[in-house]
Amino acid sequence: MISKSEIVRQLASNIDVEQLADNNLHIAVMRNPYLNFILDGSKTVESRLSKKKIIPYEAVAEGDYILLKKTGGPIVAISTVEKYWYYQNPDINWCKEKFNSLVLGSDKYWEQKQDAKYASFFLLSEVTKIQPIVIRKRDGRPWVVVS
């Protein structure tokens, strides 16, 4: 289990952690190039599409914080959720048309998501690079709500 208090303690050297007290904290595991796109500001919306109703669907709210963790690596940034959108049984072509200029998904990405039954989109703001935080996360979950 990943402890919120331990993460907050480690974040204290990076940001003003008092702002984290009243909001949910999430870890999003990300691959490149998408992580780098967020860090350089070209990608402003994170998307998660799945066949099953799994987190983060309906688990993220405005003002929540998302820690950005590199696949197989450390947490390297934190961001705030400015806005979110959830869709059940989404029209993936519509989602691509509406969000892809912000998501920067490849055609292959959208093709792989054609069978998705749940779609979550998060407008990220205040993306801040931090000193890397190494956590022990051995499961395959791409998203974790930290408690």
Results as ranks from 00 to 15, higher is better:
Gly72Tyr: 12
Gly73Tyr: 01
Tyr57Val: 07
Pro56Met: 08
Ile92Asn: 11
Lys70Thr: 04
Asp64Met: 12
Val76Cys: 06
Glu62Gly: 05
Pro74Arg: 01
Ala61Lys: 14
Ile78Ala: 07
Asp91Tyr: 07
Ser50Gln: 08
Val76Arg: 03
Thr71Trp: 02
Glu58Asp: 10
Val81Glu: 03
Lys70Ser: 12
Ile55Val: 14
Gly72Arg: 09
Ser47Ala: 11
Tyr86Gln: 03
Pro56Leu: 04
Trp94Asp: 14
Trp94Glu: 14
Lys51Cys: 10
Tyr87Ile: 12
Lys53Val: 00
Asn89Val: 00
Tyr84Glu: 10
Lys51Gln: 13
Ser50Tyr: 04
Ile78His: 07
Gln88Phe: 01
Asn89Cys: 03
Ile54Trp: 00
Leu68Phe: 08
Val76Tyr: 00
Asn93Lys: 11
Asp91Pro: 11
Tyr84Trp: 03
Arg48Gln: 13
Ala77Val: 04
Ala59Glu: 14
Glu82Tyr: 07
Pro56Arg: 10
Tyr65Val: 04
Pro74Lys: 10
Tyr86Ala: 02
Gln88Thr: 12
Gly73Asn: 08
Tyr84Thr: 11
Val76Met: 02
Glu58Phe: 06
Gly63Leu: 06
Lys52Gly: 06
Ile92Ser: 07
Asn89Leu: 05
Tyr87Glu: 13
Ile55Ser: 06
Ile66Arg: 02
Pro74His: 09
Asn89Lys: 15
Ser50Thr: 15
Tyr86Asp: 10
Gly72Cys: 12
Ser50Ile: 00
Arg48Ile: 02
Ala77Ser: 10
Ala61Ser: 14
Lys70Ile: 02
Tyr57Glu: 07
Gly72Pro: 10
Tyr86Val: 04
Pro90Ser: 10
Ile92Tyr: 07
Val60Phe: 06
Glu58Val: 10
Val81Ser: 10
Gly72Gln: 06
Lys70Tyr: 03
Glu58His: 08
Ile54Pro: 00
Ile75Met: 03
Ile66Gln: 03
Lys69Pro: 01
Asp64Arg: 12
Gln88His: 06
Tyr86Ile: 07
Ile66Phe: 02
Leu49Thr: 03
Glu62Asn: 12
Ser79Lys: 01
Ile54Lys: 09
Gly72Met: 11
Ile54Phe: 00
Leu67Arg: 05
Leu67Val: 12
Thr80Pro: 01
Gly72Leu: 09
Tyr86Pro: 04
Lys52Ile: 00
Tyr86Ser: 06
Leu67Thr: 09
Thr71Tyr: 10
Gly73Ser: 10
Pro90Cys: 08
Pro90Lys: 04
Leu49Val: 01
Ser50Asn: 14
Tyr57Ala: 01
Asn93His: 09
Asn93Asp: 15
Lys52Thr: 05
Glu58Tyr: 07
Ala77Glu: 03
Thr71Gly: 01
Lys51His: 09
Trp94Met: 14
Lys53Ala: 07
Gly63Glu: 05
Tyr65Ser: 13
Asp91Ser: 14
Asn93Leu: 13
Ile54Cys: 00
Tyr57Ser: 04
Ser47Asp: 05
Thr80Lys: 15
Ala61Tyr: 11
Tyr86Phe: 15
Asp91His: 13
Trp85Val: 08
Trp85Gln: 11
Ser79Val: 05
Ile54Val: 15
Ile78Pro: 00
Lys51Trp: 02
Val76Ala: 04
Val81Tyr: 02
Pro56Val: 09
